[in-house]
């Protein structure tokens, strides 16, 4: 069953088109990775899908409900979408555990004790329990990103959006995060992931969407898209990405 469908999605900034009529479907339990050159609109697409940047035109259906129509409860929608940012965006005045419990207490209206228990359970899931009392400044990049993933996951979102989760990490830390995301993939967590990282894309995706110039050029399983695609533009792009690794 489709969780998110977007139809002819267009986004312009000051009249300049960034997304040019995107059609995409994400089913429950599916992991879709969006790849493409810098500036092709990958992150903008994610931001449009949870209305951080409202689309200029087109429709987005979330569980069949058009969320682009006026009067939609944006706050409720965002509570169903976990968002993980490239630069972690942890609240730096709060410990790891407080980062996780804040949303549970204030948005999910959970009691402090229940929120703490839930946070501990989620932190254990990604091996961050021992770091629960640390502040973001005391964590490595990989730990920060794992904490950010836990913060999003603890809210039990219907889907997890990951915006370049490994881009600002060195290879070792990147592997830490890839293994966590891979675990979520195996647990059937629905995800939309924007990345430049072919390694990540290969290990966590059901399919990869290739975006270029704000339009979907191709969508296929990673293996076929990376190594065996008839479109020379796509072959050239992935040759570069995979060679670099």
């Amino acid at each position: 069953m489709p969780l998110i469908e977007c139809e002819n999605l267009v986004k312009q900034f000051d009249g300049k088109p960034v997304l040019r009529g995107i059609d995409l479907v994400l089913n429950e339990g599916q992991v879709k990775v969006i790849m493409g050159p810098s500036g092709c609109g990958k992150s903008t697409l994610l931001r449009c899908l949870n209305l951080l940047d409202p689309p200029t035109s087109g429709r987005i259906l979330f569980r069949g409900e058009d969320i682009t129509r006026p009067g939609v409860d944006v706050r409720r929608l965002r509570q169903s979408i976990g968002f993980v940012f490239q630069h972690f965006a942890l609240y730096r005045h709060l410990t790891v555990q407080e980062n996780v419990t804040l949303g549970l207490r204030k948005i999910r209206k959970m009691g402090s004790r229940m929120a703490r228990e839930k946070a501990v359970c989620e932190l254990e899931r990604v091996g961050m329990y021992e770091h629960r009392d640390k502040y973001p400044a005391q964590l490595s990049g990989g730990q920060k990103q794992r904490a950010a993933i836990v913060r999003a996951l603890a809210m039990d979102p219907a889907v997890l959006f990951l915006d370049e989760p490994t881009s600002s990490l060195d290879p070792e830390m990147s592997r830490e995060v890839v293994s966590v995301i891979n675990k979520l993939f195996l647990d059937n967590v629905t995800m939309f992931c924007v990345t430049h990282d072919a390694f990540l894309a290969k290990y966590i995706s059901d399919s990869v969407v290739f975006l270029d110039g704000g339009a979907v050029l191709a969508e296929d399983v990673a293996e076929r898209l990376f190594y065996d695609h008839p479109d020379p533009r796509i072959r050239q792009f992935f040759l570069g990405v995979i060679d670099m690794r």
Partner: peptide, 24 residues
């Protein structure tokens, strides 16, 4: 980005001010 993260998580503007902006 922290403010953006709060918005993405579904915090209202007054909540973001009270819980994220003001303490920092």
């Amino acid at each position: 980005m922290e403010l953006e993260a709060a918005r993405a998580a579904g915090f209202t503007e007054p909540e973001t001010f009270r819980l994220i902006v003001l303490p920092q």
